[in-house]
Amino acid sequence: MKTRNNKAWFLVLPVVLSVAFSAVVPLMTVINYSVQDIIGPDQKVFVGLEWFKEVLRDPDLHGAFLRQLIYTLVVLAIEIPLGILIALSLPARGWKASLSLVLIALPLLVPFNVVGTIWQIFGRADIGLGGHLLASLGLNYNYATNPLHAWLTVILMDVWHWTPLVALLCYAGLRAIPEGYYQAAKIDGARAWAVFRFIQLPKLSGVLLIALLLRFMDSFMIYTEPFVLTGGGPGNATTFLSIYLTKLAVGQFDLGPAAAFSLVYFLIIQVVSFVLYTVIQRTTNPAAPRQDTP
């Protein structure tokens, strides 16, 4: 009779415990908060589904959701193709490749709040290089008062910060393509576009979808950079979902509605991430049967 070795369960126990205390217990608390009016530490009133109805019908939240969706789609539409382009143009080997990779990775090492501060200063016409250059070209650029300028700055900031991640992932994917494919393409007389379309792009699909998933989750939850740069303004122009949530929970101390909104936010991230993950699995391994452990 086949015996099972259950020792592996003990190996995953630390992870289970850390996830339980860092994620599951706080999530349960948020669920509890979402159905109560938290007046004080010892004063709570059960309100049922009231906060869910309130936040789901809140026009400010609808506005923040729409802005978040547009922002995420725009940064993904820029960062993914740009990351591929950068990866394709990098040297394949040698010291130039190493140097390029180090330089490209630099923005990823900058803390989020510092990124916001860098761009806040960079965009100012009085003390920032970027703002000063634009002013000298006769452009009345001001991200603090003009919503369009604020959006452009926030998007540019995100592209500067995160395109390197996509580029590095794509670069790793490109380096993993066996040389034989390129040799076969050369024998067939394939042009650069055909090599990209029929060899590199299909081989990159796995890392591209991972990049897409990571960038979706990150950009959909973006908080620090736009908060430091614009504080969600001018008006509500760059108030994305996380900024709106923070205003609700910390600014107004509306913990009940903030908890209800957090759960809605969590569900949206879960659904989209699950769909993307499923697409990743199907794209990278469409024919293979699933491996189920008996």
């Binding site: 349960m28 608390t29 669920i31 509890n32 159905v35 109560q36 709570k44 059960f46 049922g48």
Partner: peptide, 14 residues
């Protein structure tokens, strides 16, 4: 107590 339990949420989570 800090988790602010209520009966409906306790049943839901259970």
């Amino acid at each position: 107590a800090w988790m602010a339990w209520t009966w409906p949420t306790a049943v839901f989570i259970a």
